[in-house]
Design a protein around this nucleic acid. Structure first.
Lengths: 198, 198, 198, 198
DNA sequence: GATGAATGAGTATTCATTCAT
DNA sequence: GATGAATGAATACTCATTCAT
């Protein structure tokens, strides 16, 4: 698996597994299905991945890498702080491919992968958002202590909102209000979020 | 399954299944293991439960019934509103038996059951807590709109805190602060929570 | 099971089993389903029938008794011989209840019962029809040897026609022609059958 | 399952299943018994066949292929028409292996497979025999209409005769007579059949 | 006459993993 | 690098039958 060609094949396999795990859930996706889709032999699969579990880990890493990259780009950009926060939050939102099957995400088969991704996504995003919030504090936009804990709480709420999919206008209103208050921002500072979340 | 004797046996079986689902996770607990533990024949198991899935539902119902009862008792009591809120929240906390195996609760095998219970627990608890908050508003202790949505958000946060098990003092502080602010209470109103959550 | 009351209950059970065997097939009908339909306890079922197999035999006996009775009535009646033959043949035809589910009769689940009934039905009907044919020979309407064998052959063909359900006009034509020729009747003697078989 | 070796193993498995289905009946033959007989692992069985049902279909296809081949050979040969008809009919007769266990064929366990094979065998053989009969009509040996329906009727009678196993001389006589008459042949044309069927 | 709790052998099917070639 | 034949433990569920009360 050292050649470039092998690496490309591994990535292709990973993308197929990724799509199938999301569409049908990890447990419900058998290796037989994956190799049928990829049109390779079973031995070949095991040449590239030591186990199914390892494939899941690799898939999750791939997903996280993409999301982290988007969040990181937002943080590094010259946007005003509130917009940066929104950008980081939106980076967590499942993309087109996934949200198109957002109903699937709630099916119990997917809970396992979803939880795994969710927990790790917060681990990755929290430091970035903390940085932004501290930037805001320095600018006098926010005023609060225990920044790290507040950030994790906000990220957790985000996930619940995006997960459920069934949030309404009032849910968003409450969310924005809570974010503003927990960060000690002026009422209305984060109001523009409302327009962005669907 | 009409006699009293049968009903008692069913309950006994349910408790065994309940314990095993929690200890090893639903998926990882096979019917064979359950009947070995209960020392009954396979046919007997299926005499009492139509399927494994149905057993899970019955187990969850049992858990929820207990939790809902505790919450309901709190609401009906003559405590002051803030104490009622805390009581409802604490009713959601897993009991001794479960928390003793709280590390297990995070194992991926348990995610499925955990999620199912969590979602339904919120459905059950939300109306109760909403009632209490509205009582608080009437008494001038709280001041907020969108009560239902705020309550659900608070319950989300509670679950997360109890789930993770790894919360520290600062997490609690942030939680209490957020609850106060989101309900529009005076700072310090809910402070006594800190002493109650471990 | 000596009392009259018990006998009536047994008959009622038999009719339920009969209907279910026909509707779903013998193998696919479980005793649990039968007792649920009859609203009795499992022990009660085994009080009336020693086994499922015995129930099937009893059901078949019941079906045959009815069919044989109709055929016998036809033979004893003062109809002209050709009409008697048709009457016997039509007595083999599944009744309303069954033909309404004639598609079901072809489902593989029903083959077992169907074959059993079919074979025994021929045993019962053949002597009756033989008698009628011999009556016809005495009257100079038919002219043939090996009457018994010819009769059985005709009955085979009848069953096949009623079984398949998919016979068309030409099948009937061939059938009538064959019956006439095999019995040594004048062409046209049995022609009126065409109008009777649907 | 692409290699030649795999194909050979599949065929070997098929023959084992074939023998067991015939000996004990389809339903009464468990996968466990098949793999024990073949001395392979359960997984290996399912590597070659997706399901038990699929195995049955494959077994039936194998049986039919042999029978159809024998019938086809007869039709293509330069024999006189009556002999061809007999050859096609005889091709339907169960071979040594099966008839040696002909008693088994009547056991209810085998009815399902037997019926399935029977129905499909007629589908396969009917067009061949129709062709031969039409050849006979062209040669002035036969004279009849509705050839297809008559052929199917004849084939059906054949099956009943071979099935029952209990036919006697007079049954054959009646059968031959009926065939001659239904095809509009001179009496005696098919007489030589009598010598061939046992 | 009637009940219903208890049985346990039996069944088809799944699937991640291994390994000789 | 790649293949595909082989594995076998694991799993949920069915159902006719028994028998003490």
């Amino acid at each position: 698996m050292k050649g470039e060609k092998g690496e490309r094949r591994r990535t292709a396999l990973l993308k197929i597994a990724y799509r199938m795990f999301i569409e049908q859930g990890y447990d419900s996706t058998s290796i037989d299905e994956i190799i049928a889709e990829a049109d390779i032999a079973k031995g070949t699969y095991y040449y590239y991945f030591p186990s199914k579990e390892a494939t899941l880990e690799a898939v999750i890493d791939m997903m996280l890498a993409e999301e982290a990259e988007r969040a990181q780009a937002a943080v590094a950009s010259p946007m005003p702080v509130p917009q940066k926060i929104v950008a980081v939050i939106l980076a967590m939102r499942p993309r087109q491919e996934e949200s198109g099957i957002s109903t699937t995400l709630e099916r119990s088969e997917n809970i396992v992968m979803h939880e795994k991704v969710g927990r790790r996504l917060i681990e990755v995003t929290a430091p970035l958002l903390t940085e932004v919030v501290q930037e805001g504090i320095a600018q006098g936009i926010f005023e609060c202590t225990n920044v790290e804990e507040r950030v994790r709480m906000i990220l957790f709420l985000c996930q619940r909102i995006f997960d459920s999919g069934h949030f309404n206008e009032r849910d968003i209103e409450v969310f924005v209000d809570t974010v503003e208050k927990t960060l000690g921002a002026q009422t209305g500072t984060m109001d523009f979020i409302k327009g962005l979340i669907q």
